[in-house]
């Protein structure tokens, strides 16, 4: 068996703040294979974005990866020095950010921002780099790329800018793309187009994709597997249909219940009671216990991450649809 494109083993990213240590990512283990799409789902502050930045080594101080391994094709990125990491970033591992209005530099032309990315990793002429940039723009569905390349970011709409950002991510046909809520800031119609393109690209190039989002409906149509994060930990992981149809963890149940659906028209939407706990002051046991309808006395102990069925794991001692642990 070949090594997975990316495997996180017990990744820990902590922020040393004045108020104490924030364990934004606290022992996350994940894996994504070639051509696979992993949906990383969770509320704001659950640590899903920090997980994404940790993979690329782009966590801003005071944040720091303090433990665990980031195995990219078998190589541990957490041990790589900055220069070696730089050669991977934008080249073998690319990232797409949440807000397309902010990710492109406002004072540089599109072609400048694309060509510099090509030249950062490939020993080609400027003309060749321009050619590649143009092809990438065409690939993401931008009409008249030759002409549009000479424009500045403010002359593009949000959806177009995100396409440019995606085109930049695709320039070196990376093995892994980390997409941090790339469609959150966009219209639904644009969102649909971008999702379709993302899927197509994964299938064509065998690129592995980590799609970070809080929107379950996006993941439902896109991902192969899904990992639900809560308070810096993965609480449930499994194939996307299985998790959405028969969630194990009460938090996943709550998340699914809070999505508006046609089948429950007129009925009040379920809410998860309470708020995400302060990351500075997490309870000793299950972080979700205070909001959990199934919480019992055993929940004050840290729950283990258990594989209930092959490929279906959850961090809960009172899961829904309980079955014997495999």
């Amino acid at each position: 068996m070949t090594a997975p494109t990316l495997e996180l083993r017990d990744l820990r990213t902590h922020f040393a703040t004045r108020g104490g240590v924030v364990k934004a990512v606290d022992g996350v283990s994940l894996r994504v294979d070639r051509g696979q799409v992993l949906g990383l789902v969770g509320e704001s502050g659950s640590g899903k974005s920090v997980t994404g930045f940790s993979i690329l080594g782009l966590v801003d101080p005071p944040g720091q990866v303090v433990g665990g391994q980031v195995l990219f094709q078998g190589q541990d990125l957490a041990r790589l020095d900055e220069e070696a990491m730089r050669h991977l970033r934008g080249n073998r591992i690319a990232m797409i950010f949440q807000d397309p209005m902010m990710t492109l530099n406002p004072v540089l032309r599109i072609d400048t921002q694309m060509i510099e990315t090509v030249l950062a990793h490939a020993p080609v002429s400027r003309e060749e780099a321009r050619q590649r940039a143009r092809d990438a723009l065409g690939q993401v569905g931008i009409a008249a790329p030759e002409e549009r390349m000479r424009a500045y970011p403010h002359q593009f709409s949000g959806g177009m800018r995100q396409r440019v950002a995606i085109a930049i991510a695709l320039l070196h046909k990376p093995d892994l793309i980390v997409a941090d809520e790339p469609t959150t800031a966009l219209d639904v119609t644009i969102q649909g187009q971008i999702l379709a393109e993302a899927q197509k690209l994964c299938a064509e190039h065998g690129t592995a994709l980590i799609w970070i989002t809080h929107d379950l409906s996006v993941v439902a149509g896109l991902a192969d597997r899904i990992a639900v994060m809560y308070a810096g930990r993965v609480v449930e992981e499994g194939p996307v249909e299985a998790v959405l149809d028969a969630p194990l963890h009460p938090y996943t149940v709550g998340l699914i219940g809070s999505v508006p659906s046609r089948n429950r028209r007129g009925a009040a939407l379920n809410q998860i009671p309470g708020m995400t706990p302060s990351m500075l002051n997490l309870p000793a046991g299950c972080a979700f216990a205070a909001r959990c309808p199934r919480a019992a006395s055993g929940c004050s102990e840290p729950p283990p991450f258990v594989e209930f069925r092959p490929g279906r794991s959850a961090r809960c001692i009172h899961p829904h649809a309980e079955g014997p642990p495999a």
Partner: peptide
Amino acid sequence: KFARAKGLH
């Protein structure tokens, strides 16, 4: 941050 993610020097 995006420029860093692109692997620029």
